Amino acid sequence: MAHERAPGLKDVAKAAGVSVTTVSRMLNGSLDLPAATKQRIDEAISALKYQPNPHARRLSRGRSDTIGLVVPDIANPFFATMVAAVEEAANDLGLAVSLYATLNRTGREVAYLRLLEHNHVDGLVFVTNHPDDGELAALINRTGKVIVVDEDVPLAMVPKLFSDNLQGGYLAGRHLAEFGHRNVLFVGGPDAMISTQRRFNGLRSGLQERFGEAFSIRRYSGEYTVACGREMARRFLEEGSPATAIFASSDEIAIGMIEVLREHGISIPDDLSIIGFDDVSPLHLFAPPLTAIRQPVRAIGRRALSLLLETNWQESEVLATEELVPVEIVVRNSVAPPSTRNKQR
């Protein structure tokens, strides 16, 4: 038997005939209302047996009731899905979300972090997609009330939330090994990024578990973009790499690579196997459907907001914790045993 959903701010607001923001601001003491309006809200709370969220109230009391969400690119399906999840979770708590797209540029990231310094938002869910030279970490540490998500800012002393990239790489390596692939090409983001490092190390671990030291991994580094995928595929073809399988560590890279490989008559998986990472794009519609490591991006977005609200920012020293979200492999049809044909690439 399903449990009934606990009443939320939206339910109270609807019953009282006011906005969610009005209810939220009344509860945190930042808004004076006419007596009749306040009475309607109190009666709705009583009738619904509504229990206010103490974490949300602690974060936003006397402030803007607005959470900042900083992402590199809202056109990327991965980040777009995360944005939707954060928006949905915030709406349930009567909090607004201010979205800032940085184009993955440090200058824009710095500008948005400074909004928090000036109290324009109550806290930030911060996502970057490039290595940090220390500038972002210094600003995050000075500002506080920031949750670092998806990619690390190594010297930032705040809570962090990542997918289990090491496990994801391991699952990819184990799957390729099960099909007999000993020569694998890894295509990742910048080498300094935690996602690249951990996905590569996991891949190596998965292959090593099956083959000992009798395997080889060639490694290309670039960006998590379709354009990078195209460039890496051209490089792969020009070099005549002996790899029989590719681990493309993002949907975008995989899509770009497949585009170029098809142009050159490379059949997947008959000539070359490939595994992607993210599984946010409609990879099941590809021909063949693409096997990928799935990141639970909506769960990551919801958990990021919860972590921001749960953290006691009043403590003199907030711990730089790291929380990992499990990933899974979604097996489709893009991996097969190494081709016996000596196809000239």
Rank of each mutant, 00 (worst) to 15 (best):
N91L: 11
K49S: 13
R63V: 06
V83T: 06
R57D: 14
L93V: 06
A16E: 00
N91C: 12
N53H: 12
E87R: 11
I74V: 15
G68L: 06
T37W: 00
I67S: 05
A15W: 00
L31A: 08
K38W: 00
A13H: 07
A15R: 02
L31S: 10
L93I: 03
R25H: 10
R40E: 01
R40F: 01
T21C: 11
N76K: 15
D73F: 01
A56D: 02
N53S: 08
S64D: 11
R61E: 13
S46G: 12
T66G: 05
P52V: 12
Q51A: 14
A75Q: 13
A89C: 13
S19A: 09
A15H: 01
L59A: 03
V12Y: 02
A35V: 04
A44Q: 00
S60G: 03
M82F: 07
K49E: 10
L31K: 12
E88L: 12
K49R: 14
S46N: 14
A90L: 05
Q51M: 10
A16R: 02
I41T: 03
G17H: 04
F79M: 01
E88S: 14
V71F: 03
L33I: 00
I67C: 04
N53K: 11
N53M: 10
A89Q: 11
N53Y: 10
D32G: 02
E88Y: 11
T22D: 07
R57A: 10
L93M: 08
S24G: 08
V23N: 07
S24E: 09
Q39E: 12
E43A: 15
K10D: 06
A35Y: 09
R61N: 07
A84F: 08
V71D: 03
R57L: 15
Q39W: 03
D73M: 02
T66L: 12
P72G: 11
I41P: 01
Q39H: 09
I45M: 15
N53G: 09
L69I: 10
M82A: 08
V83A: 04
Q51D: 11
S64T: 15
V86F: 11
V86G: 00
A90G: 06
Q51P: 07
S30G: 12
G17M: 05
A84Q: 08
K38Y: 00
P72C: 13
L31I: 11
A15E: 00
E87V: 05
S19M: 12
V86H: 06
P52C: 06
V86C: 04
T66C: 14
I74D: 04
Q51I: 15
T21E: 07
R25G: 01
D11C: 01
Y50T: 05
A90W: 01
T21V: 09
